[in-house]
Simulated scan of single mutants.
Amino acid sequence: MKQLPEILSADWSPQLGALGEVVEDVADIDQCIRIILTTQPGTDPLRPLFGCDVWRWLDAPVDIALPHVVREVYAAIGMWEPRAEVVGVTLSPGDGESHWRVRVNWQPAGAPSQRQTEVSYV
């Protein structure tokens, strides 16, 4: 377990699913993007607008869903994660267990290195 003096970054948060662990810097941004994309707006009572409306398009055909999913991802990350700049979004059918896979290519704000975050929707 990391103690507070061992955390070296100004941006950090508890790591989901790992008691006593933290994520810092780029890993923290990645985790925040995952949280944003998997939260339906209205489910956080203290922030009713927090989340992403990708859920509304999960049952639509790909050609109809794609522009809406891209719009929702750009809007949600733009509103809730100012440390990341979205470079691109791809939507693909999931494997047998997931319905859709959304892959977000992003970069830390002001940095040239690109990262990728993938979220599966069931």
Rank of each mutant, 00 (worst) to 15 (best):
Q31T: 04
D11M: 11
L49S: 02
M79E: 15
P112C: 07
A111F: 13
D25G: 11
V70Y: 03
V22L: 08
G94V: 02
W100Q: 13
W106Q: 08
V86G: 08
D28A: 14
A65I: 10
G51N: 02
R47A: 12
T39S: 12
I36C: 11
R47L: 11
V119N: 02
A18K: 12
P82T: 09
I33G: 03
C32K: 12
Q31N: 08
S113A: 15
V73P: 09
G42E: 01
Q3V: 06
I29F: 09
R71A: 14
V119F: 08
D28T: 00
A27R: 12
G96E: 05
P14C: 12
V69M: 10
T117H: 02
A75T: 15
E81I: 14
E24M: 15
F50P: 06
L58E: 05
P45G: 00
L8I: 08
R115S: 10
I33K: 07
P108S: 02
D63I: 01
I35W: 04
W57D: 12
S92E: 15
E118H: 09
L4I: 15
V104S: 12
M79H: 14
D95R: 11
E97T: 10
P41R: 04
V73I: 04
R115N: 08
G96N: 04
G96A: 03
N105M: 11
L91E: 10
A111Q: 14
A27T: 01
V26R: 12
G78E: 02
V86Y: 03
A65R: 12
W12N: 13
L49F: 03
E118W: 04
G96T: 06
V87S: 13
Q107C: 12
Y121V: 07
R56A: 13
I77A: 05
L66R: 12
V26M: 06
D30T: 15
R103H: 09
E21A: 14
F50V: 04
N105G: 01
V86S: 11
E72S: 14
W55K: 01
Q40G: 00
A75G: 15
L4F: 15
E24S: 11
D30Q: 15
R56N: 02
W80T: 06
Q116R: 06
E21Y: 04
A75D: 14
Q31E: 13
S13P: 00
H68G: 05
G42C: 06
D11H: 11
S98M: 01
D11A: 09
L19P: 13
P108M: 14
V119R: 05
P41Y: 03
I36E: 00
V104D: 07
W106L: 09
W12Q: 07
W100K: 08
W80Q: 12
W80A: 08
W12P: 08
I64N: 11
E24G: 12
G51L: 03
D44Q: 13
A10M: 07
R101V: 13
Q40R: 15
I77Q: 02
E72R: 09
I77N: 01
